[in-house]
């Protein structure tokens, strides 16, 4: 393969512009790296789909708790549409009542980390996702840095500052005089890694397994505050208490709005 280190470059001028590189680099380095990364991405996508575990079994009680929170927040949002006396008060009592209120009940604090430790299938799922992300990336990195190091491979058509030289020209011995825009294969690897995402969206459709940013965001969220049920309960409880005992606006002015709408309907043809 292209293990030769300095056969590629033949400079025509002492400094930067117009280096001509051996076409062999193009066919044996540039294209193969891109192709390989693309294919590895496709394989990863399909492999993760094949290995995906089925839907996790959820506890019935847990369902009730999370749905209760949603129902309470919906009540808070839409309480204006139903009558005050009977309906809203009754429902608020259903949630907040000291002894029997749904939101008053002690709930097991389902911390996702604790859940991860106890639930083997979720743990396995997480591990699979991590492995499928880390292993191909590091393998490709090692492959590129082992085989394709020590020579100039490509020229970036956009300007770069000198600070990038260390990162992008790693392994190239002509330091100091060569334009920073001439980069090594490793930088091509990184460029591919970031740029391929768009290509994958096009070819593999939405929801592909390559979108690392989404995965990383998810991990960060989980490391932070998980869906803390106890807190959610307290929040919803307090929010419900705050709603004043006054007829909802929609409910109050229902007649006027009906009259307005009817007038408009009568005017139209």
């Amino acid at each position: 393969m292209a293990a030769a280190s300095t056969t590629g470059a033949s400079s025509s001028s002492a400094l930067s512009n117009s280096l001509t590189l051996d076409p062999a680099i193009r066919t044996w380095v540039l294209v193969p790296i891109s192709l390989a990364m693309f294919l590895i991405g496709v394989i990863r996508h399909h492999a993760s789909r094949l290995l995906a575990t089925g839907p996790r079994k959820v506890e019935l009680k847990a369902v009730r708790e999370s749905q209760a929170v949603m129902r309470a927040s919906r009540l808070r949002m839409n309480h204006a549409w139903i009558s005050r006396e009977a309906s809203f008060r009754m429902r608020r009592a259903f949630f907040n009542d000291k002894k029997e209120g749904v939101l008053q009940q002690k709930v097991k604090n389902n911390n996702p980390q604790a859940q991860m430790m106890s639930d083997p299938s979720m743990m396995q799922d997480m591990m699979m996702k991590n492995m499928s992300m880390i292993i191909p990336q590091s393998l490709t990195f090692m492959w590129v840095s082992f085989f394709f190091s020590g020579f100039v491979m490509a020229k970036a058509p956009f300007p770069l500052t000198q600070k990038f030289r260390v990162m992008l020209q790693r392994g190239i011995d002509i330091s100091g005089s060569l334009d920073v825009t001439y980069v090594s294969s490793l930088s091509w690897y990184f460029m591919n890694m970031f740029g391929m995402r768009g290509l994958f969206t096009l070819t593999l459709g939405e929801g592909n397994a390559i979108d690392d940013t989404a995965l990383m965001q998810q991990q960060m969220e989980q490391a932070g505050a998980g869906m803390d049920k106890a807190n959610a309960f307290v929040m919803e409880r307090e929010n419900l208490e705050l709603i004043e005992a006054r007829d909802g606006m929609v409910y109050e002015k229902a007649e006027e709005r009906a009259a307005k709408v009817l007038k408009r309907a009568l005017r139209a043809r």
Partner: peptide
């Protein structure tokens, strides 16, 4: 009156275009 208010709301939401709403009102 509660029923009446709800029927008014129904009337508003359907722009007065459904006879059933009007009859109920």
């Amino acid at each position: 009156i509660v029923a009446y208010k709800h029927l008014c709301t129904a009337c508003e939401l359907c722009a007065g275009a459904h006879p059933r709403v009007l009859w109920s009102l």
